[in-house]
């Protein structure tokens, strides 16, 4: 889903640079008090984790495979703005050092994978979780809304990507949009499974590391090192 240079026209990538730049500035402002000392190394190493997790391919169907996006997982574990900033760091490093995603398309890629797939989907998830948690309990509510909205986050991000390519006049809507969204609604299932199962694992041993979890501490008998 990383758009390279040359696929978007000036009005599209310029606008998205503005939107992504503004959101990034706001996110830095929101978390500025918490960024002292410990937080930056922690977020940097989490960015390395997201980068490595994106290399875990999972099978989709008929020999094709999708890869993990991780925007929802990052937001749920770290908090929405920290998660967004981690995604921005990952996308910047992928762009500047791995040439994965273009320089002019960086704003668009941050918009698709950080804002639409991350922040926006996270807040949709919170909207579902709040009423659910009164009904089925905090842990189940969190896991089920994360399952639903990590699927939504991948589908929305791919839809945004397809729409940008169409607006730029690069590809026709009637072919690309259904193809992109269709493939990613399959990949989204993998994303939902991975995100939810990963969250279950983290909740079991270190619920204190899950920002979106507001329930009582669960059994805290083992740390990951001992489990592994």
């Amino acid at each position: 889903m990383h758009i390279p240079d040359g696929f978007l026209d000036l009005k599209t990538w310029g606008t998205l640079y503005g939107v992504s730049g503004g959101t990034t500035a706001y996110a830095l402002y929101k978390v500025r008090d918490r960024l002292e000392g410990k937080k930056i190394p922690l977020l940097g190493i989490t960015a390395a984790f997201i980068f490595a997790a994106q290399m875990l391919n999972f099978p989709v169907a008929g020999g094709t495979s999708g890869h993990f996006l991780g925007a929802m997982l990052a937001c749920v574990l770290l908090g929405p703005f920290e998660g967004f900033l981690v995604m921005v760091t990952v996308l910047m490093v992928q762009c500047f050092f791995f040439a994965d995603g273009g320089l002019t398309a960086l704003g668009a890629n941050i918009f698709n994978m950080g804002i639409v797939g991350g922040l926006f989907s996270y807040y949709l998830m919170v909207l579902l979780k709040a009423p659910l948690s009164r009904w089925i309990g905090e842990k189940k509510a969190l896991l089920s809304s994360v399952a639903v909205f990590s699927w939504v986050s991948v589908v929305l991000a791919s839809a945004a990507c397809a729409i940008e390519l169409v607006i730029s006049g690069t590809v026709p809507f009637n072919v690309t949009f259904p193809a992109m969204v269709g493939v990613h609604s399959l990949i989204g299932i993998g994303e939902a499974i991975i995100t939810t199962v990963a969250l279950v694992v983290v909740l079991q041993s270190r619920p204190d590391l899950v920002d979106a979890y507001r329930g009582p501490a669960l059994s805290q008998t083992a740390t990951a090192g001992e489990v592994a």
């Binding site: 190493i45 490595a52 875990l56 997982l73 990963a198 740390t223």
Partner: peptide, 28 residues
């Protein structure tokens, strides 16, 4: 080979996150 086996990748991702966080804490 099948999509539902993505659960295994999920467990890997969860463990990987825990290990990376604990490494981060030690490093810090």
């Amino acid at each position: 080979r099948w999509l539902w086996q993505a659960g295994v990748v999920g467990r890997m991702a969860g463990t990987l996150f825990l290990r990376s966080q604990e490494r981060a804490e030690r490093v810090y």
